[in-house]
Design a protein around this nucleic acid. Structure first.
Length: 113
DNA sequence: CGCCTGACCACGT
DNA sequence: CACGTGGCCAGGC
């Protein structure tokens, strides 16, 4: 078997790499991460991966919805945690929304420079 | 194979 | 900016 992983596995690998590539203090949308991983239209796959992820080194908190909002309900522990982590990196969060960093998925490349 | 669910997205109002 | 609507994709049963 010539060292080739299953498509799904390879996709997951690339998505995680894209998430890890988000610089500290910066944020990105699920759809944006998917595109960056070469998987346009797979935003939900990114979300699914993060929801099952257990690697503490993965900067999952830098991934937001396309409108810059945190993807958890306001009262959930995930929301609290993400909010705290972002603020600790100097990211401004107001009303469950990140201000000033422009994480919208429609802004191709803008966040990634 | 159909049906339902989810850390989603784009678009119109 | 808030909401509702339809679309998309991967999994679980």
């Amino acid at each position: 078997m010539p060292t080739d992983a299953k498509p799904a596995i390879e996709a997951a690998r690339r998505i995680l790499a894209a998430v890890r590539a988000i610089p500290r203090g910066e944020v990105a949308g699920y759809g944006e991460v998917a595109r960056r991983a070469g998987l346009p239209g797979r935003a939900r796959m990114v979300a699914r991966l993060l929801s099952h992820n257990e690697d503490p080194r993965l900067p999952w908190h830098r991934v937001l919805r396309s409108d810059g909002r945190i993807a958890f309900p306001e009262d959930s522990p995930g929301y609290i945690e993400q909010c705290a982590r972002l603020r600790s990196e100097g990211v401004r969060v107001e009303g469950g929304r990140v201000r000033g960093k422009r994480a919208a998925a429609t802004l191709d490349e803008q966040v990634w420079g």
